[in-house]
Nucleic acid binder design. Structure first.
Lengths: 229, 229
DNA sequence: GCAAAAGTGTTTATGTTACACCCATGT
DNA sequence: ACATGGGTGTAACATAAACACTTTTGC
């Protein structure tokens, strides 16, 4: 009935792999620079200790807000890492989450030299503290698998986006090119993208904007529909 | 540098959802009857506390051995459950695993009234302790998803099995019938089943026995092959 | 001889892939 | 005018789905 230590317990932390996409070629991950030992000065995943009166996902959201200013992001539990020697301070078990954030409303974006939080392209990551490299690898693998049968890509784009941007994102995540016509036909056939009467102006021909209709998507799922790009 | 309690920590446990298949209509799960409070006398998942010097999967294997006698089973991490009030004794976070065991070399099978460990059909489960119902649901969902794109079914069958048994297992897991000819053609086309010169005798026409060739499967995976039933 | 599971091919429908050109805009 | 991304259709191919009868054994 108590939470005192009848016998020693591992410490429990959460760590977050935060993915972002700015429309460029590569997928990005948000790292923070550690201010304290161990691994002081090294890049690491945002995260920290789980409090006694908060759920695991709550802890992940809290730490994410405290360390990066991000809130209201897509968050999903990834895996729990518990190798006995993964932390030099002693036994620390970490529940890893991965987060997807839209490029708008993103505090860290821009102050890329804040010496606090910074985005790195996934192929171009620095050495990271603890076993965070392993966690990163697992997160990337999971995202690559998930994106093909669940509509998570939309969590990485602005609310309104062109099909070109959506395709670019898929290519960035999957790491290969996809055929433009086939991609457009398929994704529109699903019928959960709503064409808007607005266009993205830019240096070239304006592209029609779409938005993801989650209600429609969930209705389709209930009818036994399967996504699958 | 120490594992003493600088501040209170959640307790950490592992729980295992053990799946089995005896060739009948339904998939089964192994539960144990709790001998101590809370939920004394109730059915629950096998599991227990993680020790300071063992990894998470090691803890799951140890508990499984201690409580059910099972060893050398397929084991995969499922999800970590950490709701603040999931255990009436206080804050307890549990890393859930799911296990797949072959019907041979299975101590619990048979002594179904041992008042210790017992198999239940998945649709016919009793009330279970803590949030173990939720864990069971997650495990079943995961198994149903996984079986379609990874060859885990073989972990639930004897080393040598007929295609009829394999098909029956898939029907039990997926909860629907599959076409015999299409199933056989597809599964044989994958080329990781080895036809043996032995047959399963029974009350009817003998069926050819096959075995799963893991080496061949892994070679295929490396060549970028995708399973998918 | 009958009940029960094993075993076997073909046709049809559906989905996937490959592929090339014109359009609208900013510079 | 040119560079850049937006936008469109069709034919070949591959995969999936539907479907019925014969075989072999134990009883």
């Amino acid at each position: 009935m108590s939470n005192t230590c009848e016998f020693p317990r591992p410490a429990l932390t959460v760590d977050c792999v935060v993915f972002g996409y700015d429309g460029g070629a590569g997928l990005q991950v948000l790292l923070i620079r550690r201010g304290i030992a161990p691994f002081k000065g090294a890049w690491a995943l945002p995260g920290g200790f789980v409090l006694m009166d908060e759920g695991l996902e709550d802890a992940a959201r809290r730490e994410l807000g405290e360390e990066t200013g991000l809130k209201d992001v897509f968050l999903e539990q990834l895996f729990t890492f518990g190798a006995v020697d993964r932390d030099p301070r002693g036994r620390v078990v970490s529940v890893a989450y991965f987060a997807l954030v839209r490029p708008d409303r993103n505090p860290a974006r821009g102050d890329t030299d804040a010496d606090e939080a910074r985005w790195f392209e996934v192929d171009g990551m620095p050495e990271v503290a603890f076993d965070h490299g392993e966690i990163l690898g697992a997160a990337l693998e999971r995202l690559r698998g998930k994106v093909r049968y669940q509509p998570v890509g939309f969590e990485l784009l602005p609310k309104r986006f062109t099909l070109g941007k959506l395709q670019g994102l898929y290519e960035a995540i999957l790491g290969r090119e996809v055929d433009k016509r086939n991609f457009r036909r398929k994704v529109l056939a699903f019928d959960f993208l709503v064409a808007l009467e607005e266009f993205e102006m830019g240096a070239h021909r304006p592209g029609r904007l779409y938005r993801f209709d989650r209600r429609r998507y969930e209705a389709l799922v209930k009818r036994g529909f399967l996504f699958e790009l």
